[in-house]
Simulated assay, not measured.
Amino acid sequence: MLSYFETLKLDKKEMVMQAGNLCNYNYFVVKGCLHMYFTTEKGTERTVQFALEGWWLTDFLAFQNHSSTDFNIQAAEKSQVLSISREQQELLLEEFPMLERYFRTIYQIAYGASLIKVKYLYDLSKEEIYLHFTEHFPDFAQRVPQYLIASFLGLTPEYVSEIRAKNRS
């Protein structure tokens, strides 16, 4: 199966996908962490998704439709990923049809996680969102830079610092 993939070794902050380009690849994280984000009209980066070891990351809609993406994917730390093109993924699925179920499950989990995030954004205060995240994902919260976590949760890094200082005292 590995013959369908290309191995990429990424330095921290190295890009693998840029907004405006065709989304031709799906990325599997072997080691490290990637984050997917977009840049607002005001120039603010908003992280929409992370991928740690064993996770997949791409703009799934643009990948499926073979269209350009509105997102960037960047290494949040030194990483090793497996990259598979849309064409190679189709060939892989033809040769190993049982992987169809695997990918369906991956997409269902990703969609479900997105729904939960939206629910939290509507249901919880900004402080509760941060505290919930750090309580439920403590290793992740220690590993990923705070400014990326703030971006993912729709907060400013300054506000995250305030929450952290308040909870230390």
Results as ranks from 00 to 15, higher is better:
residue 66 H to F: 04
residue 16 V to M: 04
residue 78 K to I: 00
residue 124 L to S: 02
residue 146 Q to F: 01
residue 34 L to I: 03
residue 17 M to H: 07
residue 86 R to K: 14
residue 63 F to C: 03
residue 23 C to E: 15
residue 82 L to S: 02
residue 163 I to M: 12
residue 61 L to N: 14
residue 47 T to A: 03
residue 21 N to F: 10
residue 91 L to W: 05
residue 169 S to W: 12
residue 99 L to D: 02
residue 167 N to A: 03
residue 128 E to L: 04
residue 161 S to M: 06
residue 15 M to S: 11
residue 159 Y to D: 09
residue 97 P to V: 06
residue 82 L to W: 09
residue 111 Y to L: 15
residue 5 F to A: 10
residue 23 C to Y: 04
residue 83 S to N: 12
residue 3 S to N: 15
residue 81 V to R: 09
residue 25 Y to L: 06
residue 71 F to W: 11
residue 81 V to P: 05
residue 28 F to V: 05
residue 118 V to K: 12
residue 117 K to M: 11
residue 9 K to P: 00
residue 100 E to S: 10
residue 113 A to M: 13
residue 166 K to Q: 05
residue 96 F to I: 13
residue 74 Q to I: 02
residue 33 C to S: 13
residue 22 L to P: 06
residue 16 V to K: 07
residue 26 N to S: 14
residue 128 E to H: 04
residue 141 A to R: 02
residue 18 Q to P: 00
residue 101 R to L: 03
residue 55 W to S: 02
residue 108 Q to L: 15
residue 77 E to C: 05
residue 56 W to L: 08
residue 61 L to Q: 14
residue 107 Y to H: 12
residue 150 A to I: 07
residue 31 K to M: 01
residue 155 L to S: 06
residue 87 E to Q: 10
residue 150 A to M: 09
residue 29 V to C: 09
residue 46 R to Q: 13
residue 96 F to S: 07
residue 100 E to Y: 15
residue 19 A to F: 05
residue 94 E to M: 01
residue 113 A to G: 01
residue 168 R to V: 07
residue 111 Y to N: 10
residue 34 L to E: 10
residue 98 M to D: 10
residue 84 I to K: 05
residue 54 G to R: 08
residue 95 E to F: 00
